[in-house]
């Protein structure tokens, strides 16, 4: 219908007239694009990029709190404190150890929950009902997941403890506030919460594998393990990279669940790095030090994250 209204003569004409007219059109298009891009980009740059620039001069001062009347330059002291100041070391190193343990265990749950559920779903066919169940915990806040952990695994009153003791499966109750309890239960609950998210990532990767390659491997007589390692996983590499990036960044920044476990006040075993930065900034007046530690911890991660992201995008297209 439109063909009668749009004469195809316009395009060849403008092309033959040379570059000037085309660039004018391009300019108008660019102006229009920027009109639409700028509102959100302004907010984004102001709230995500500018804070980095604002933070840089503060890293070299002794700024203690947000409305500190007297700020003195201290040079590289904040950066060196991690290697020289025993007080900072006593705060940072245990938190770092707990965080690394948490990241490793949490990364395992990505595969235990996410990958195996995705494979199950892929092999027996997509089940909307089961997907709904697996994704359900993602509707729950981190804070609520933390309190659920307390409710289930408290030493005296935890429902799971009471249940297991009633049925005689355990003698010694699990204690969420002990070092071991926190270290194992926290990644378990976080992994349970993100199971649906990771499953969706892996399932999307599985669904993108061309059916022919799988059929060919079956015809060639491969067993399931061989198919997993040589057909599925290599073709799912972008999914693995995405899940790794998200898990790495997410677990270094885990916070809400820790608050529920009492990390800000009573439970030192739940003090991971994010809690330490928060405490330095908002509770014990060591703002500049907190910022410096946060930058020193996260910046290598951000760089690693960008590298992983680039690799993932290159593999995908």
């Amino acid at each position: 219908m439109r063909a009668t209204i749009v004469p195809p003569t316009g395009n060849p004409l403008s092309r033959s007239q040379g570059k000037r007219k085309l660039s004018k059109l391009e300019k108008r298009r660019m102006l229009r694009d920027w009109m639409f891009i700028s509102p959100q980009l302004f907010i984004f740059v102001l709230l995500t990029i500018v804070p980095f620039i604002v933070a840089i001069p503060i890293l070299f001062t002794d700024m203690a709190q947000f409305n500190d009347p007297q700020i003195n330059p201290v040079g590289l002291h904040n950066f060196l404190a991690l290697f020289t100041d025993s007080g900072v070391q006593a705060d940072y190193l245990p938190a770092l150890r707990r965080t690394v343990i948490f990241v490793v265990l949490n990364y395992t749950t990505v595969f235990i929950f996410g990958l195996s559920l995705a494979l199950l779903m892929y092999e027996v066919g997509f089940r909307g009902g089961f997907f709904t169940v697996v994704y359900l915990p993602l509707m729950v806040s981190g804070l609520a997941v933390g309190y659920m952990a307390v409710m289930l695994f408290s030493k005296e009153t935890g429902t799971v403890n009471l249940l297991l003791r009633e049925t005689g499966l355990i003698k010694k109750p699990i204690d969420i506030y002990s070092a071991r309890g926190t270290a194992f239960i926290l990644p378990l609950m976080v992994g349970w919460r993100y199971a649906g998210y990771n499953m969706a990532i892996f399932l999307a990767g599985l669904l993108s594998i061309p059916k022919e390659t799988i059929e060919a491997s079956i015809v060639d007589g491969s067993n399931y393990w061989q198919r997993l390692w040589h057909v599925y996983f290599p073709q799912m590499l972008p999914s693995f990279l995405l899940a790794t990036t998200m898990c790495l960044i997410g677990s270094f920044a885990v916070f809400d669940e820790l608050v529920a476990l009492g990390a800000l006040y009573v439970n030192p075993e739940a003090k991971l790095l994010s809690v330490l930065f928060f405490t330095y900034g908002f509770q014990i007046d060591r703002l500049a030090m907190g910022m410096t530690l946060a930058v020193m911890t996260f910046l290598p991660l951000v760089i690693l994250g960008v590298a992983l992201q680039r690799l993932q995008r290159r593999l995908q297209y």
Partner: peptide, 11 residues
């Protein structure tokens, strides 16, 4: 995607 909220929270 790779900048955690905790990193930019204070500034």
């Amino acid at each position: 995607m790779v900048i955690p909220a905790m990193l930019i929270l204070l500034p």
